[in-house]
Amino acid sequence: MNPEPDPTLITAIQQAPAVRRLKVLTVNTHKGFTAFNRRFILPELREAVRSTEADIVFLQEVLGSHDRHAARHPGWPQTSQYEFLADSMWTDFAYGRNAVYPDGHHGNALLSKYPIIEHRNLDVSITGPERRGLLHCVLDVPGQHQVHAVCVHLSLLESHRQKQLQLLRRLLDSLPAEAPVIIAGDFNDWKLQGNR
């Protein structure tokens, strides 16, 4: 049996001040390691991410789990990396698993100070071993229509990125025209071919 909602809490939520600006951060976590996997830096990364005081954090290549790394690296978190990064600062988070292998899995994640009322992960992998996804979250931000946040991690190959951008466009075309949308992540678009 569900308890009756607290009317005081409902009133407080209804009277929350409207949010007019959101602070956004995007980080490719590289599974918690420095370049070329030389050193495990997830605890330092958490402090750096926290210091930004972002409202929404878009993460790419974040580990959901990895048994071998957990056994080999002191200080490996007892939770998923996205939960470790969220800590007590971001109350809501969503994860979209993109790649699965014998020791674990990784993907995109979104950390939010506002409630995530819905999320889904869209597989936009084209061919070959690169597994990529679009994590689409719907946020309940005071004073706004529902805010759509899309965390992207696109291919290293230009031809694949162009197809993935078409899939992203299809997702955007399916959203309500008046809906606020934030798209952030790792586009791997060094030649700036995807700007338009």
Rank of each mutant, 00 (worst) to 15 (best):
R131C: 14
S51N: 05
G185L: 04
K191C: 10
F58N: 04
N37S: 00
C151V: 13
A16Y: 14
A94Y: 03
A109R: 00
S51L: 07
R131I: 11
L172P: 01
R161P: 12
Q78A: 15
A12K: 05
R38K: 15
L135C: 08
L192F: 01
P3I: 07
T26V: 07
H145S: 15
E118P: 01
P5F: 11
P176E: 09
E83F: 02
L42T: 09
I56M: 00
C137G: 13
Y95D: 03
R46Q: 12
T127H: 09
G133K: 02
H73D: 00
I117H: 00
C137I: 13
D55Y: 03
K23M: 02
L167M: 04
Q60P: 11
A99P: 00
P17C: 10
F93R: 04
E47C: 14
L139C: 10
P129V: 03
V147I: 12
S174R: 05
S155C: 05
W90F: 04
P115Q: 14
N108L: 04
R170F: 13
H145V: 13
Q78I: 08
P77V: 01
A109Q: 01
V100T: 13
K163Y: 00
G32N: 05
F33K: 08
Q162D: 02
G194V: 14
R38C: 09
E4I: 14
M1K: 14
H145N: 14
K23F: 04
P115V: 05
N188A: 12
P77A: 00
R161Y: 07
L85V: 08
H136N: 10
D87V: 04
Q144W: 13
M89N: 14
L172C: 08
Q81T: 01
Y101R: 11
L175F: 10
P5H: 11
K31G: 04
Y82L: 15
G128V: 14
A149V: 12
E130P: 04
A54T: 08
G75V: 04
D67P: 00
Y114I: 06
H153V: 12
G96E: 06
R169T: 10
R72G: 11
R132V: 11
V19N: 09
L134K: 09
H148A: 15
L168A: 09
L165H: 11
S51M: 12
C137L: 14
P77F: 00
C151H: 00
H148C: 15
F36E: 06
Q78T: 07
Q81K: 02
Y95N: 02
L59D: 02
P129R: 15
S65L: 03
D67I: 13
